Simulated scan of single mutants.
Amino acid sequence: MNESVEVLLDRVQERGGYKIRREAAGAVRCVLEVLGAHLVGDDRTDLARLLPHQYEPLLTEGPSASEPLTPAAFIAAVGARVDVDAGQARRAVTSVLATVAEVADDALLRRILTQLPPGHAGLFGRTDPT
């Protein structure tokens, strides 16, 4: 099922406590760009198919990361893209990734988490896979 942009942004806006839609949209854009750089293969495209088609290029067309990011470095990378402090960046990351976790099935989410260093599951609102 492909989420609508409005539904996705509503969820991120509510989760992140954003007052205006534009802030939620900016969070989605930045987090998906960073996430897409750290995913490879079918996992990128499988996730992109579940999100509104406008977000597909953010996941699939960006350059691949040169090295994996710890959860703290992932948050810092998002913060650097939108020039916000660590608390605001963490809010963006957790609100977007928890929304992503809602639309991805458990198998896809497990595959995504295995591509990321340990500790990222918490950013998705989940526990680390065993």
Rank of each mutant, 00 (worst) to 15 (best):
L39V: 02
L123H: 05
G16S: 05
S95D: 01
A80P: 01
E67W: 14
V100L: 04
Q54G: 06
Q54T: 14
L47F: 01
E61W: 11
L8K: 06
R81Q: 11
L35F: 03
A86R: 13
V28D: 02
L58K: 06
A37I: 05
H38W: 10
V84Y: 02
A27M: 02
N2K: 15
G119F: 08
P118N: 04
E33I: 11
P117C: 08
R29T: 08
G62H: 03
V12L: 00
V96Q: 07
D42L: 14
E56A: 15
T94S: 01
I112K: 00
P117I: 00
A48G: 06
E102W: 15
R81E: 11
C30L: 09
G41M: 03
L108H: 05
V31C: 06
A92Y: 14
G87T: 11
D105T: 02
T114R: 12
E61F: 12
L58M: 10
P71D: 07
L35R: 03
T127F: 10
R126K: 13
Y55E: 06
L108G: 06
C30G: 11
A73S: 13
D128Q: 15
E14W: 13
I112E: 02
H38F: 09
L50G: 02
V96A: 00
V12T: 00
V12H: 04
V82S: 09
V84W: 01
L69P: 04
A48I: 03
L32D: 03
R111S: 09
R110V: 13
L113K: 05
G79C: 03
P57C: 05
A72E: 11
R91C: 03
E56K: 14
A98C: 09
A72V: 09
G125T: 10
A104Q: 08
E23P: 05
V40C: 12
G122N: 08
T99P: 07
V40L: 12
V84M: 04
T114L: 11
A92W: 12
V40N: 12
E3W: 15
T60L: 00
L108Y: 07
R22V: 15
G125A: 09
S64Q: 13
V7M: 11
A107Y: 12
R110Q: 14
T70L: 09
P57D: 02
A101W: 10
A101K: 08
Q88M: 09
R29M: 04
I75D: 06
L113A: 02
Q88H: 10
H53R: 14
G26F: 05
L51T: 04
L35H: 00
A73I: 06
D106A: 15
I75T: 11
Y55V: 06
L109P: 09
E102R: 12
T127N: 10
Y55N: 06
Y55W: 13
T94R: 04
L113Q: 00
A86P: 06
A25R: 14
A80S: 15
H38G: 09
L59D: 07
F124Q: 05
V100I: 12
L123M: 05
A86Y: 14
A92K: 10
K19A: 10
V100Y: 06
T70S: 15
E33M: 13
T127P: 05
V28Y: 08
S66I: 04
T114M: 08
T127V: 13
Y18R: 01
L69T: 02
